[in-house]
Structure formats: structure tokens, C-alpha cells
């Protein structure tokens, strides 16, 4: 009986892994799937296969997938809040900013992996860091997006925004000074 329950849970996790739009979540679902299937192997009297499944499926394969995702195109979004103090974390609300869900939709459409970083540093400090794609600053319900000219994903995001004419967002394009 308990095996059948776990079979159903396995199928649920497999479907979730296939249908989630974000890669990172799919990897986590697959790891859970592997761990559960190892448990099912134990229930069915195959501890040897269970040990191999647990080690390879939920450890090695997961780490390799995560390392591959690190190489995969990651779209790094900094969300700045310059006014806030680093030591007071209460202001980081659990709910997402509405702008972030729009950017995430854009990322999923272009098969990018969104990585959102909440920062309290100054804008110029972040700009000197390598690897950022978009910096979002918020001034009284008005969003300002900074993107680099040579970053064609950021430019595509800007084009999409201008086409759809969404309000309260302005776009600043950084030019390379060298």
C-alpha cells in the first residue's frame, strides 16, 4: 500500500519537473524524485540499487545540473534600494515586486535563467561589478532600469517595454567608456 502512495508521489514530482518553467526548480524536483525512488527501491527489496540511486541521482546528477546551469545563460538582475540599511532586513517583503514578475516572464520566454539579487549598495558600486545585466532602482513607484548597450538581452527587454508602452518605467542605456 505504501509503495503505491510513493508511486503516485513520484509521478507528481516527474510531472512537476517537466512542467516548471524555471530550470533550477526542475533540478530540485528531479533530486526529490531520485531520493523518493531510492526509498521505493528499499521498499521493494533492492537496497543496492537504492544506494546507487540515492548517491548518483540526488547528489552527483544534481550538482552536475547546477554546475551546468551556472554555465547556462544567467540573467543577473540587481534590485537596488539605496535608502535602506543593510542591518534591517524587515523591508525585504515576501511579495515580489510587480516589475520582477514581468522581467521573469521575459526571461522564461527567451530561455534565460533569472537570478535576482537584492542589494543596498550604491548604484555606481554595482555598476563596477562584472556580470550584471539589468539594474533596477525604484524611486517612489517609478522604476528606472539600467542596461548596457552591448547586452542584447537587455536591449531586447527595452524594446519590448517600449513596444508595449508600460507606464512608470524608464530605461537608461549605459555606453561603454574605454
Amino acid at each position: 500500500m505504501i509503495e503505491k502512495i510513493f508511486f503516485v508521489i513520484l509521478i507528481v514530482f516527474a510531472i512537476m519537473a517537466v512542467h516548471t518553467p524555471k530550470m533550477r526548480q526542475a533540478v530540485v524536483y528531479l533530486a526529490v524524485f531520485s531520493a523518493l525512488s531510492a526509498f521505493v527501491y528499499v521498499l521493494m527489496g533492492a537496497p543496492d540499487a537504492a544506494l546507487a540511486e540515492a548517491v548518483i541521482g540526488s547528489t552527483i546528477a544534481t550538482i552536475i545540473y547546477l554546475a551546468a546551469l551556472q554555465k547556462y545563460k544567467v540573467f543577473m538582475i540587481y534590485l537596488l534600494d539605496e535608502k535602506q540599511d543593510t542591518h534591517h532586513r524587515e523591508h525585504v517583503s515576501r511579495r515580489k515586486d510587480p516589475i520582477l514578475s514581468t522581467i521573469e516572464e521575459f526571461c522564461i520566454k527567451r530561455e534565460l535563467e533569472p537570478l535576482i539579487i537584492y542589494a543596498v549598495d550604491e548604484l555606481d558600486f554595482i555598476k563596477k561589478k562584472p556580470g550584471w545585466d539589468i539594474i533596477v532602482t525604484k524611486v517612489k513607484n517609478h522604476y528606472v532600469l539600467h542596461g548596457r548597450e552591448q547586452n542584447y538581452h537587455a536591449m531586447a527587454l527595452k524594446d519590448e517595454w517600449e513596444k508595449e508602452k508600460k507606464a512608470k518605467v524608464s530605461f537608461i542605456v549605459e555606453k561603454e567608456h574605454e
Binding site: P47, D48, A50, L51, A52, V55, I56, T59, I60, I63, A67
Partner: peptide, 21 residues
Amino acid sequence: NPGGGFQGGAILVAVFMSRYL
């Protein structure tokens, strides 16, 4: 017991992988 060379070796790999993390 359950286990053996392959499974144990794969567990040892976890040492190097966690080092990479």
C-alpha cells in the same frame, strides 16, 4: 552489505564536488 566499490566511490566524489561548491 548493500553497497560496494561503485557506490562508495561515488560517495567519495561528493567530497570533491562539495569542495567545488
